[in-house]
Design a protein around this nucleic acid. Structure first.
Lengths: 325, 325
DNA sequence: TTGTAAGCGTTATCAG
DNA sequence: CTGATAACGCTTACAA
């Protein structure tokens, strides 16, 4: 069913149908006839033809690099909310670890003429951004810092620093830190560096701190902690780069020390908003971020970019809240 | 940058460029010249023009009705994996509770000429399916039963029945069930009915069973349980329709009975694969579904539909595993 | 207010 | 093997 067919049925020109759809000059009488024809035929206009003609899609592409589940849905919710309100659509693509998956997703968005792209990534930003630059498509990076690029991210370093400072460690404390891996700047190295700096500030001697690097899943947190404890050392604190790892760590700690809090049982800390962990392990020292706000800010930045009322590159850093101490 | 411009630069016709991109007859010499021109210009073909011309997009739309977070990412992962392998793209849209959000998302997919649509929904399937029927766009429903429609779902009734049967309840047992709400057939009424049937089978008298209906979040599980226990009754079992609710229930139980398992402290059961809950509350009786397989099956069904090698409507019911008993 | 017609970037047909 | 050309469905001058 096309424009033209509807027009014929209604006894008007195809231009009239287009005007009906987009709000142009039209007599009340034709308006009704067209409405009836559309209703009758179930006509759905072709977005592709429109985009082709208009050379823009009023749509923003969102590419999510798979990582921490809960983060993503909060951020996208915020993004979509703001974008819709501003009259834009959103087109999502999840990408996993497969080779080149991010490139494919980004390219396919370009092919579909998205007007802007938001990259949500915990790993280093892919090198394929030139693609968008050449096409003059504005880019907003979420969750990472990128030199001279528009980005919105959380202050992971500061959050980890404050968390470490709030734990009440002394010169005697023994602390283990479970790092999420070098590949991930935001919840990997930023948190690790912040945490270690915080400990140093608190006066914990370097020799009392053990850092273990692994993945960010529950299982990886579990095995890393298990190994650590099996080595025969006692820790006052086992700090984890993510809530998922913390869940694994808690399991390992309980297996070793029993379920009751006493004596040498280490305290576990996490990082994130996981409500299930909060309920079951609480009060657990952790850090909360407002993911939805992050999405909103990113969307706002994008919309400003699209509307052209922005001149310079902005890098926005969002705050955090240390809880459960 | 367009087809034609690249063609000029390479000194060939636009048809040749098209053949280069889609693999048609082309001399090695021109092939090279075109490749060079594309490289040089950063040309990206327009998917919209192609779709307009071809009248198909080789893309499947996936509409996710917001609900249980963890479910979704597993199902979409399975869907995308299979679809990509079969040569299709996927286009995601998350929709929340806002009025008409699902309709808008579905319509916009139609406007973009998706070749098929997968609806992932825990609430009743929206009435807007005629849209797709009129457009002859195949539909696969995930997570719900829908009369005379292609669908893939889990056996929620059976799972809840088996879970109830496995709990070792006797004629003396007191059981509370936290229902997730009538709006949700799959994890609402199906699970409730299955659970109650299982209890009956196990010989638990109806009078010993309390059903409370609420939402499916951690908090709602917490408050419902708290209220239940504050009423002064003791329960042997508090069964929850979702793992999130179970997390809340566990918190409430601990607040009332302390953290040690003994005496009248009720056992809590959940429903789902939440790894964090498993680690921290385990072993917790719960039911596991293979979400990724669900996505794969749905994609398989869709691809069969698209390829036309399928005649009748299929309704597929996937199994489950009761664990943590 | 309304209709005509050109053009958006592809691909497929068809003649060379 | 190659190139000209029509057509896909829509919007928008421009002319009426």
């Amino acid at each position: 069913m096309t424009n033209k067919e509807v027009a014929e049925l209604a006894g008007v020109s195809s231009a009239a149908v287009s005007r009906f759809l987009n709000g142009g000059y039209l007599s009340e009488e034709k308006r009704e006839r067209i409405a009836a024809a559309i209703e009758q035929t179930g006509y759905v206009p072709s977005a592709n033809a429109r985009i082709l003609r208009m050379k823009k899609s009023d749509t923003v592409g969102i590419v999510l690099t798979k990582s921490d589940e809960s983060t993503l849905s909060g951020v996208t919710a915020g993004l979509e909310k703001y974008l819709f309100a501003a009259g834009y659509g959103a087109s999502l693509a999840y990408v996993g670890d497969e080779d080149g998956a991010d490139f494919n997703a980004m390219r396919s968005m370009l092919e579909r003429q998205i007007d802007g792209i938001v990259l949500i990534s915990s790993a280093p930003v892919p090198g394929n951004l030139e693609l968008f630059e050449r096409a003059r498509v504005p880019i907003v990076i979420v969750g990472q810092h990128a030199r001279n690029r528009n980005c919105v991210r959380f202050d992971n370093f500061g959050a980890a620093y404050d968390l470490a400072s709030a734990l009440g460690c002394t010169m005697e404390s023994r602390v283990a830190y479970l790092d999420a891996g070098k590949r991930y700047r935001s919840f990997g190295s930023d948190r690790r560096r912040g945490f270690l700096a915080g400990l140093e500030r608190a006066g914990v001697p370097e020799g009392h701190v053990t850092v273990v690097t692994g993945g960010f899943s529950v299982d990886e947190g579990y095995y890393a902690t298990k190994k650590l404890l099996a080595a025969g050392n006692d820790y006052d604190i086992v700090s984890c780069a993510t809530d998922a790892m913390a869940a694994g760590a808690i399991k390992a700690v309980r297996e070793r020390y029993g379920t009751v809090r006493r004596g040498k049982r280490p305290r576990v800390t996490g990082f994130g908003n996981d409500p299930i962990l909060q309920a079951v392990a609480g009060p657990l020292p952790t850090v909360r971020f407002d993911y939805e706000e992050c999405g909103i800010k990113a969307a706002e930045m994008m919309v400003d970019l699209l509307r052209g009322d922005v001149k310079s590159v902005t890098s926005m850093v969002l705050g955090y809240k240390v809880v459960g101490i």
